[in-house]
């Protein structure tokens, strides 16, 4: 365990220096836009660390909204005729700067699905493994943050390689993994500080941040209840009434992983894509026979909450499929609040 001190005046220089070995990704606000999004930072672009939380979660770094799985051609003149070729993609080391701890922890939940002993999604895994996560601790959590009730929190280290803590004129960088250590070295940040004192300082900040989080959820009863009891509960109609069945909650959520596969053919060649999809859309479960097992809105709304708060909990016995970032609540056009739904399910 060690802690490095990074003077803010060395911040930009270090980032630029690390470019010789890493691609940099971070939140960046384009000119004229209202909020920053995670993107690959061009030379000279600095990650925006002022925004508490990005509207769009950083899941797209490893799970883009649309991704080509393979290309093909049926042109007999081509030497690739009738071959399925995975497109070249840059999987060189990539440092994700300023990711929030719960967003990084979300990858661990998604990993349970994309990286299993039986099956490994190469697109997700390759992109994930290329990343070194340099997280930014949250000193001032926002109102919809309930990450302390999930397994995460504003200073959660589980998904990170380095945890940065903003100490006003400098950052303290807690090194969590060797990957993280390697990145700090590449950036030339090597000023070690007294570990015990620094950890104490960080823990103090952590406690301060955690007590600021007023919203709490609990799911101890959900665990005990049977699936059918929850499935047949009478509150679903009420929960679902306002829902307009858009995809905002699922698309913004860092832990939602569903996708749809689409082929696009142009002449003799084409591509197969993986596109985000979500349980809120009727088309998601529409069978080619015309039957839709989740044909009406209330079934889809129930599915979203049951998956996150019950099925996942039962299947992996490792908490809920939610890190408590609060995006779904904050950006739902009609204010459907997962904290309230969880309360209903737990009562």
């Amino acid at each position: 365990m060690k802690v490095i001190k990074i003077d803010k005046k060395d911040w930009v220089g270090g980032l630029e220096k690390s470019r010789s070995a890493y691609r940099l990704v971070g939140p960046f606000k384009e000119n004229g836009k209202q909020f920053p999004v995670f993107k690959e930072l061009d030379k000279g672009q600095e990650p925006d660390l002022t925004t508490l939380n990005t509207v769009i979660s950083p899941k797209s770094i490893v799970f883009p909204q649309s991704e080509v799985m393979f290309e093909y051609t049926t042109d007999e003149k081509s030497e690739d005729c009738n071959l399925l070729k995975r497109p070249e993609k840059n999987y060189s080391p990539c440092a994700v700067i300023g990711i929030r701890p719960y967003d990084a922890a979300a990858f661990l939940l998604v990993q349970k699905n994309f990286d299993t002993p039986d099956y490994r999604d190469p697109y997700w895994c390759d992109a994930y493994e290329a990343c070194t996560f340099i997280g930014m601790a949250i000193n001032n959590p926002d109102n919809t943050d309930f990450s302390t009730s999930t397994k995460s929190g504003p200073f959660d280290e589980s998904g990170l390689d380095v945890l940065l803590v903003d100490m006003k004129d400098h950052f303290l960088a807690k090194v969590i993994t060797d990957k993280g250590d390697a990145y700090l070295k590449a950036a030339g940040w090597t000023a070690k500080v007294d570990t015990d004192a620094a950890i104490k300082q960080i823990d103090e900040m952590k406690n301060k941040a955690e007590v600021k989080i007023a919203s709490k959820i609990s799911f101890d009863n959900i665990e005990k209840k049977s699936i059918m009891e929850l499935y047949e509960a009478d509150f679903w109609e009420d929960v679902a009434f306002a829902c307009i069945n858009c995809g905002t909650c699922t698309y913004l959520c860092p832990t939602c992983w569903c996708f749809d596969i689409q082929d696009e053919n142009h002449g003799k060649s084409g591509k197969r894509f993986k596109n985000w999809d979500g349980c809120m859309f009727p088309l998601f479960t529409h069978h080619s026979s015309g039957h839709n097992p989740r044909g009406i809105k209330v079934m889809r709304v129930r599915q979203r909450f049951m998956h996150k708060l019950k099925y996942f909990l039962d299947k992996y016995e490792d908490g809920i499929m939610c890190v408590g970032c609060g995006r779904c609540t904050r950006f739902c056009p009609v204010n459907i609040d997962i904290r309230n739904v969880c309360k209903l399910m737990n009562s």
């Binding site: 909204q65 069945n245 995809g247 905002t248 913004l252 056009p333």
Partner: peptide, 27 residues
């Protein structure tokens, strides 16, 4: 530029009272 951040969540369509088609042309 206006649409550059659109994520196709269809909240705009679904919030609109006019958009009640059983199957939208995009679906």
């Amino acid at each position: 530029d206006l649409l550059s951040t659109c994520i196709r969540c269809y909240a705009c369509r679904n919030a609109c009272p006019l958009c009640y088609c059983p199957t939208c042309f995009v679906d």
